[in-house]
Design a protein around this nucleic acid. Structure first.
Length: 247
DNA sequence: ATTCGTGTTTCAAA
DNA sequence: GTTTGAAACACGAA
């Protein structure tokens, strides 16, 4: 979505047409300031204009699209060209407007860990990032203050691809090398997969499930055919293969 | 007809 | 310091 926004917004004047006021945190931005830069940090997308910055988060169901919205429209991003629609069925997403000068402090306050992508990281790096945690691996992978940007789906998929039981306690994890490789591979693949004009979420009507285990409880494991299990970890659904992952 | 569950984060409390 | 649970929200499915 950050790539799309960068292309769609260009570097001309940008204005906000706020449809649902709950989306906005902070005061209404000035009209028509030029876009300087569009970038991503963890799951936040940042649009820097001349004097301010818009920090977007899509939470569970938010997305930006170009085409006429089929979903709940919460805001429009207006450029000289085609408007960009911020859709969000549940409206848990947010658009934070703040002076550009406050951007650094804004992110520092979030205590986000380093990025696992696009630069690949080593086995030692993954182990070090989760060092000191005593709980299960999968919730640990989702700790944004340790490693930024992995969510519930990524955590399940990475554990599966690495052949590790998501309930393995972090101190007991052996295959950091597999985790390092498969985490990068998953992120790379899913970003390529989702590239295009619109993100399609798994639960939306008519969308297919591109994942190997997520959302596939009861289906056959793509590697060994055993039925995929679903269980809860920290109140989030985990999907795993009982045979491939010893789960 | 209620309850559940949901690509997330934050805050309080155990 | 680490881990868990609830809340913000809307809505289809169980």
């Amino acid at each position: 979505m950050t790539r799309n926004l960068r292309a769609w917004l260009g570097d001309g004047p940008l204005s906000l047409d706020l449809v649902d006021t709950r989306l906005l945190r902070g005061t209404l931005p000035e009209d028509a300031q030029a876009v300087r830069k569009v970038w991503r940090r963890a799951k936040y997308c940042v649009i820097e204009r001349e004097n301010d910055a818009w920090v977007l988060h899509f939470r569970m169901t938010g997305k930006v699209v170009l085409e006429r919205p089929g979903g709940k429209l919460r805001a429009r991003l207006l450029t000289l060209g085609t408007p960009v629609h911020f859709l969000d069925a549940r409206c848990l997403g947010e658009l934070v407007v703040l002076p550009r000068a406050e951007l650094k402090a804004h992110f520092q306050a979030k205590h986000l860990g380093p990025e696992p992508f696009p630069e690949p990281q080593s086995a030692a790096w993954w182990e070090e990032r989760l060092h000191g945690l005593r709980g299960a691996l999968k919730p640990a992978l989702m700790r944004q203050d340790r490693i930024a940007g992995l969510g519930n789906i990524a955590a399940s998929e990475i554990c599966f691809r690495a052949g590790v039981d998501p309930r393995t306690l972090v101190p007991q994890v052996q295959s950091w090398d597999r985790i390092a490789d498969e985490a990068w591979a998953f992120l790379h693949e899913v970003i390529e997969q989702e590239s295009g004009p619109e993100i399609h979420y798994v639960n939306e009507a008519g969308s297919s499930n591109p994942f190997q285990v997520y959302g596939r409880a009861g289906e056959d494991c793509p590697r060994c055919g055993a039925p995929i299990q679903r269980f809860l970890q920290s109140a989030r659904s985990t999907f795993a293969c009982p045979r491939c992952q010893g789960a």
